[in-house]
């Protein structure tokens, strides 16, 4: 069954087109990574899906409902981000206590265990938490809701390395125990590659890729060799990325096709995160070219 169905979704702010044309469908019970550069529109898309903001044009359906101001969507989805806030009059323990009343599938045990594991202070106030602890608490909250659609917007911002690893582990374990649709946005794909099934890559408000992780990994190859040879080989092909290594050697990233094996050219696989980076790059050349 389709959880999310976006058709030509657009969102305009006053002077800015945050989402140009988003069309994709999300099947149920999958972990999807929402990848994009800064300002690609990830947060805007998630907020529309969570029903916090209105679309400007196009169509968006979450559980076959328009999510904006929809109670059914609100009851079955959660967006965890760093702007999540809770009343200052409630301690963290209080928040965990009232949450089951709102979220019918709230997992008290999971929430309490994670809370203890991450050594949060139950008497602390949410607004007084450090950035990392707040992110950790929000993550616990998001996981424990067990919402059919759980969305994380840059969940690991502020978390330290150990907590990040724990978070991904916890997410994966909980997902396996209770499969549901999870959408995680991030701008670094590499660290969460291992738990994603699908990748939704957006760039400048448009969907660039929506494929399984395996497909993305196979998307491109890197040819490395002497400049002449590499240029000859890739002539007429779409070059995703090119870099001059030194005066003689160069590498070029192209779409994976049948590339004839040639003496002097090595073929390397390209990691999914690199693919995403190259596909969404507007510039020819890299930062090095600025300093030439």
């Amino acid at each position: 069954m389709t959880v999310i169905d976006c058709q030509n979704l657009k969102k305009r702010y006053k002077r800015l087109n945050a989402l140009e044309d988003i069309t994709f469908q999300l099947e149920e019970k999958k972990i999807t990574g929402l990848i994009g550069r800064n300002g690609a529109g990830k947060t805007t898309l998630l907020k529309i899906l969570a029903g916090f903001i209105r679309k400007s044009a196009g169509d968006v359906q979450v559980f076959s409902n328009n999510p904006f101001n929809n109670l059914r969507v609100s009851a079955n989805s959660i967006l965890v981000d760093d702007q999540m806030s809770f009343p200052d009059s409630l301690t963290l323990a209080d928040i965990l206590e009232v949450a089951p009343e709102f979220y019918k599938r709230w997992d008290t045990e999971l929430a309490n265990n994670l809370f203890k594991y991450f050594r949060l202070n139950p008497k602390q106030l949410h607004s007084r938490l450090s950035k990392g602890n707040r992110a950790t608490f929000n993550m616990i909250f998001g996981l424990a809701t067990r919402c059919e659609l759980t969305m994380f917007d840059e969940p690991t911002n502020g978390m330290d390395e150990a907590v990040r690893t724990d978070f991904y582990r916890a997410l994966l374990k909980d997902y396996i125990a209770h499969p549901r649709s999870i959408l995680i946005s991030s701008h670094h794909l590499a660290e969460m590659e291992h738990l994603l099934e699908d990748i939704l890559l957006i760039h400048k408000g448009k969907v660039v890729l929506h494929q399984s992780l395996e497909e993305v990994k196979e998307y491109a190859v890197k040819l490395q060799g002497t400049t002449d040879l590499v240029e000859k080989l890739t002539d007429g092909k779409e070059i995703l990325h090119a870099k001059q290594l030194d005066s003689q050697r160069k590498y070029v990233v192209i779409r994976k096709e049948d590339v004839p094996a040639l003496e002097g050219v090595t073929i390397h696989p390209v990691a999914a995160s690199e693919v995403c980076m190259y596909v969404t790059s507007d510039r020819k050349g890299g930062i090095d070219d600025v300093f030439m």
């Binding site: 200052d88 009059s89 301690t91 209080d94 602390q124 106030l125």
Partner: peptide
């Protein structure tokens, strides 16, 4: 009162 309740945990 809002800011004091910020500072004091037992306020509630």
């Amino acid at each position: 009162t809002k800011s004091t309740s910020n500072r004091i945990n037992w306020a509630q």
